Amino acid sequence: MKLALFDLDNTLLAGDSDFQWAQFLIEQSVLDREIYEARNVEFYEQYKAGTLDIHEFLNFQLKPLSRHPRKQLNAWRTSFLQQKIIPIIAPGARELIAKHQTEKDLCIIITATNSFVTAPIAQLLGINHLIATEPELKDGEFTGRVSGIPSFRDGKITRLEQWLDQNNLTWLSFLESWFYSDSLNDLPLLEKVTHPVAVDPDITLHQHAQKNDWPIISLR
């Protein structure tokens, strides 16, 4: 068996679903533009620079989920997918996924973005398995807090190994493993797999990939 792991934002997508979700809510006047837009941009720049405090960001990103009933959030999400996500699916994403699926590889999207936003994106891309940051739920509604370990940086390895254990698997279950990512934040997991692949990488990851002779590809 072989394992194929895919980052989502700026990898399979030519954009960031976390950032776009906040922008969508601002455009719908759900969030106050004056208060939220500058903070959204600030957090995104911190993420790209590798300086993001994930818990500070999640407090910002998950809190709005707690202010609205799940039914309304689901309705907004449907519009969000049509308006913001489908247009930014990277042109080469489906072909790359199909290549691994044809080989019967175990395909998993692993992302720091929360599962409320990303679960339907994984479905759109035809990938059944998703490891994402989990928003806390109480009586079916979001509390605005995170549940468990965010799948960010080293947390991606922790969450993946938890998932493998729950499915009676380990790293040794796989003859080969791939991880496709654009971001310096994913260096811990990229260094763990047998085939790290830099996809439309940021400057830091591009340099790291060149230094270590990792493949560098574009899905755009």
Rank of each mutant, 00 (worst) to 15 (best):
I54F: 11
D154Y: 13
L187V: 12
P150G: 09
E34Q: 14
I203F: 06
T158C: 10
S177F: 03
Q20D: 14
Q61N: 11
Q61C: 08
D213P: 00
R77L: 13
T11D: 11
L65P: 01
A75G: 07
I85P: 06
N10M: 06
T78L: 13
T118W: 02
L160W: 11
A38G: 11
I109G: 08
T158L: 14
Q210C: 12
F43N: 01
I85H: 11
Y180H: 05
S79D: 14
V193R: 08
L184V: 13
R77P: 07
L31G: 00
P188N: 08
N212V: 06
K84W: 05
Q61D: 09
E134L: 13
L184D: 02
F174V: 03
V193Y: 11
R153T: 11
L58V: 07
L184A: 13
L205E: 01
G50C: 02
L172D: 15
A198M: 06
E134G: 00
A98V: 10
F43L: 08
S151E: 05
A122H: 05
E136V: 01
I109S: 04
A119P: 01
D16S: 15
Q82C: 03
P150V: 04
A49T: 05
N59E: 14
L65M: 13
I216G: 05
A90K: 06
Q207T: 12
L187Y: 06
P69I: 13
G92V: 09
K2T: 08
I109Y: 05
N185T: 15
I97F: 04
E176Q: 14
P120A: 05
D105E: 11
F43R: 01
P69Q: 12
L164S: 06
E95K: 14
W76I: 07
I216S: 04
F6C: 03
D7W: 09
F43K: 04
I86P: 06
F152H: 12
N10G: 00
Y47E: 00
E141F: 10
H208N: 03
A75C: 13
K48I: 08
N212W: 10
S66N: 07
E176P: 04
L125R: 09
G50E: 00
R94D: 02
T158V: 15
D154P: 10
W178M: 02
T113M: 02
H68N: 11
E45K: 13
Q72V: 09
T78A: 14
W163R: 10
S181E: 08
T118Y: 04
I110C: 01
A119D: 12
L96F: 00
H208I: 06
K138L: 15
L3R: 03
Q123V: 07
A112W: 00
S173F: 12
I86W: 10
V30H: 03
L130Y: 08
G50R: 01
T194E: 09
L187C: 02
L124D: 04
P188G: 05
L25D: 05
A209T: 00
Q166N: 15
Q162H: 06
R67H: 15
R39W: 10
D202N: 12
K211W: 08
S218K: 13
A22I: 15
T158I: 15
G144Y: 03
T51Q: 12
L187I: 14
E42Y: 13
F60P: 03
R94A: 06
T133H: 12
E176G: 07
V30L: 08
A112E: 00
S173Y: 12
R159F: 06
P135R: 08
I121Y: 13
N74M: 15
